[in-house]
Each structure stands twice: as structure tokens, then as C-alpha cells.
């Protein structure tokens, strides 16, 4: 049972990482990159590493996502606004 959940979570990491590569919308890319961090943090809990899971959840999926969003917001060009 534990193995099945872990495998499903790992598939979730891979899918959200692929989404982050292949999507076109900047906001969706950042959100799916954060989602892969969230899946990774749950995987760490399943693999009995709660210390690492806390760091990953707070930094990998929380702070990094927000910093990317701020950076995208600051560097947005008026010409290609349809890309975002």
C-alpha cells in the first residue's frame, strides 16, 4: 500500500515537471513547478523524512513560487502580453 502511494506521488512529480516544461502560460508553469515541489514533500513524508519535507514544502513550493511570480510580474513586457 505504502509502495503504491509512493509510486503514485512520484508519477505526480514527473507529470507536473513535464507540465512545467511544456505549458505555454507563464503563471501555469510556475504553479506546476510549485506543484512538483509539493508532491516531492509528501513523498519525503512517505519515505520517513519529515525534516526534509518541511523545508521542501515551505521553500520549494511556497517561497520559490512567490519569488518567481514577483519576478515575472516585474519583467513583463507590454508587447508580448498575450504570452503570459
Amino acid at each position: 500500500m505504502l509502495l503504491i502511494i509512493t509510486v503514485i506521488l512520484c508519477i505526480g512529480i514527473i507529470i507536473s515537471a513535464l507540465l512545467a516544461i511544456y505549458l505555454n502560460n507563464m503563471i501555469s508553469i510556475v504553479i506546476s513547478a510549485g506543484l512538483s515541489g509539493l508532491f516531492a514533500s509528501v513523498t519525503y513524508v512517505m519515505l520517513a523524512a519529515p525534516d526534509v519535507a518541511m523545508t521542501e514544502a515551505a521553500i520549494g513550493s511556497g517561497l520559490t513560487t512567490l519569488i518567481f511570480l514577483y519576478a515575472i510580474n516585474k519583467t513583463k513586457c507590454k508587447d508580448d502580453i498575450n504570452d503570459y
Binding site: 518541511m54 523545508t55 515551505a58 521553500i59 511556497g62 517561497l63
Partner: peptide, 13 residues
């Protein structure tokens, strides 16, 4: 479980 880095990151969030 947890510690300085984790607590600091939670405070920052």
C-alpha cells in the same frame, strides 16, 4: 522533526 531552517522558512512564509 524540524529545526532552525524549517522554522525560519515557515516564519518567512
Amino acid at each position: 522533526p524540524g529545526g532552525g531552517f524549517q522554522g525560519g522558512a515557515v516564519i518567512a512564509s
